[in-house]
């Protein structure tokens, strides 16, 4: 219950911030934490699950070390973000919304990152990469792949 110490027990209106805290801690929403949340907020677990599945932010599965968020906003779409997504998917061998088996990469699509002026944009963890082309993307991906390999060796 350490995680909820800033909140009042039975305060249903703080459900979403609490879930955000849990996700910050674990990277996703583990089932047992959702049960704990339900007890703490005096809400049925179904309601917690309902909220978790409604919002794009919440995930029910663990994430990779590098989360690649591909912007699918209008400006990015017009500038070819679908191709960017396809290339990423084939380079990493996973589909959007999936995590690689070694838990290194996750690809997610987001509605709009809000950096439309430098479309097409992807964000790897919190770092933005804009104005991508097929070639610059391949370079970027191989850079991260190398980083992963290096980490594995260590």
């Amino acid at each position: 219950m350490e995680l909820f110490k800033n909140y009042k027990e039975g305060d249903a209106s703080s459900l979403i911030p609490m879930m955000q805290d849990v996700q910050d801690q674990y990277g996703y929403l583990p089932e047992e934490e959702m049960v704990k949340l339900a007890r703490f907020t005096h809400l049925p677990v179904a309601r917690i699950y309902g909220v978790a599945s409604f919002y794009n932010q919440f995930r029910l599965r663990p994430l990779g070390k590098y989360v690649i968020r591909v912007c699918r906003g209008t400006a990015c779409h017009v500038k070819g973000s679908l191709d960017i997504l396809r290339i990423l998917e084939s380079e990493l061998g996973i589909k959007a919304g999936e995590t690689s088996k070694d838990l290194n990469f996750t690809i997610e699509t987001v509605a709009c990152i809000g950096a439309c002026s430098i479309a097409p944009v992807i964000a790897i963890n919190d770092e933005f990469h804009g104005g991508l082309t097929a070639k610059s993307l391949s370079k970027l991906v191989s850079r991260y792949k190398k980083m992963v390999q290096k980490e594995r060796k260590q």
Binding site: R72, G73, T74, A75, C76, A111, C112, G114, C116, S117
Partner: peptide, 11 residues
Amino acid sequence: DEGDPGAFMDR
């Protein structure tokens, strides 16, 4: 909650 894709004024 500027969800409109292609808009970033509020940000």
